[in-house]
Every structure is written in structure tokens, then in C-alpha cells.
Computed example of a mutant assay.
Amino acid sequence: MVFHTPRGIGLVATALCCLSTAAAAHGIKTPADQAVTASFDIVETRIVSDHGHAVFSTRVRADAGKATPQATGKFEGSEVYAYVWPTSLDSADVGFEKDQGIVALAVTFHPDFDDAARGEKNRDRWHSHWVVLNEDKACPGGLKVKDIPEGTKPRLPETWPGAPILIDSPDYRTDLKADLVEVHIPLEKIGAIATASFDGVTAGLRINANLHAPLLCITNIHKVASGNLSLPGKVVPAK
């Protein structure tokens, strides 16, 4: 899989081809890149099992969560900033139909709308989602959160927020502090993670200004931990 970015920026794989990555207890270590905003400059990505939880973590050069989108006052055309862990999980592992696309955990901030479960509010804080990604050339970043076609009734998680895309809004503990982003997920909720592989991405997304499919596109890739989205990370027990 290669992320495609707008003309003038080039392929992410090309832009990152000179990054050397190293395994760190089956996590992914990546050299800092001063050309990337510090809060999106991934230097280490890990998933560990610890006391009954899978702990997803991304360490950046500095200021995790400091950069947030500017509010526009409108849903359509609004921006989303995200720390993302693409995985080898199947979509059925997180409550959707099987074989729907790339399953990713995402920590997001979007000041113009709420997408918490059961109508709760979350636009004023960083929070976590499961999303299913598909390729779509209509998106500047080459990927979208998969749309739900009108009139269909696919299998959806109980905490699906009601948007016509494959997104889930479970209330997982999500922490951003100093240079670290962490999400704690009970292993009973995601037992398949034990044998999964993963990667790390920082990205910007945007709601379609016309509210048509694709509704939510990846528009900008800041950094890919592996440099090529090869999912080299492996889940290991915490030391």
C-alpha cells in the first residue's frame, strides 16, 4: 500500500524513502525529521499488552496534541487531525463485516462536530476511534474512511456514532502528554490484537464540502513510521 499525496508533494513512500527505521522490541523507531511539525513527527510507535490491556502508543518529537484544526463553524469541509495505527486486523475483529479494508485505530481532534457514541460530545478533546480505510483516488491522500452505501444495513458496532462511514467510537482511555499519545484498550475487547502487526501514521483528514461519498478523506500525510506502510510492528508484552 502506498499513500498518494497531492501533486507537488509526491508519494509518501518517495518522500520518506531515505528514512531508516529500526525495530525496538518489535515497535518501530524512526529518525526525527525537522521538516515535519514536531507534534506530528513520529519517532517511535508501539503496541504492548500490559495488565489486561493493549496499549497503543506513539511518541513524537514534542508537543503531542498541541496542533489542532482551526474551527470553521461548519461540518462540511471541516478538518480532522489524527494519530493513526494501521493494523493487520480484520474488520470483523472490531465489530464490522469481514474483509472491509484496512483496520486502524485513530486518535482524532475535530472542533466542528461530535462523533461520540450515543449522541455524546467529543469535539473539544482528543479521542479514539476504530476506522476502516479503503483506497479512493478521489481523495488527495489516496485513502478514505469507507462509506456506507445508502440503503444498506451492514454489521456495525454498538458504539457506531451514526455517521454513514465505517467508524466506531468506543470510550477507550486516551492520553496525550508531553511527547506521547497513548490509548488503552481492554484485551477482552480485541483479543486478535495479540498476533497483529501495525504501523504508525500522522495525518490530516477533511469532510467532503458537498457531503457526498467519499465523505471523509485523508488529505495530508505528515509521516509514516515505517516509511512505506509495511506494518513491521509486532505486539509484545510490556517489560
Rank of each mutant, 00 (worst) to 15 (best):
W85G: 04
S78Y: 01
E76G: 12
G65V: 01
T87D: 13
A64K: 03
E76M: 12
T68N: 08
S49D: 08
F56K: 01
Y81V: 03
K74F: 12
W85Y: 13
A67H: 11
V84Q: 12
R59D: 02
V55D: 00
V48S: 02
G65H: 06
L89Y: 01
D63L: 14
G65S: 08
S78D: 06
S78R: 07
S57N: 03
K74Q: 14
Y83L: 08
V80D: 00
L89G: 04
H53S: 03
S57R: 02
A62P: 06
S88K: 06
T58E: 13
A62V: 02
T68M: 03
D63S: 11
S78F: 04
P69T: 00
H51V: 06
G52L: 06
P86C: 10
H53E: 15
K66W: 05
V48P: 05
E76S: 11
T72E: 11
H53L: 13
E79N: 14
W85C: 06
P69Y: 04
S88L: 10
V60K: 01
A82R: 13
F75D: 10
G65Y: 05
V80F: 07
T87L: 15
A82H: 12
S57P: 02
V84W: 04
Y83S: 10
S57L: 04
Y83A: 10
G65E: 03
L89E: 08
K74H: 13
A54E: 02
A71D: 12
P86H: 12
E76A: 15
V84H: 05
V48M: 08
Y81F: 13
K74P: 05
T72H: 09
R61I: 07
I47D: 00
Y83F: 12
S57F: 02
E79M: 10
V48G: 03
S57C: 04
S49K: 10
G52V: 08
K66L: 14
H51W: 04
G65W: 00
F56L: 13
T72V: 09
E79P: 03
A64H: 07
Y83K: 07
H53K: 11
E76I: 07
T72N: 10
F75A: 07
V84K: 00
R61W: 00
W85E: 08
A67L: 08
L89V: 09
K74G: 05
Y81E: 09
A71C: 08
V80A: 08
A54K: 00
E76K: 13
H51N: 13
A64L: 01
D63R: 15
A54H: 05
F75E: 14
H51K: 14
V60F: 03
T87V: 13
D63Y: 12
F75N: 04
R59K: 14
A64W: 07
A64D: 00
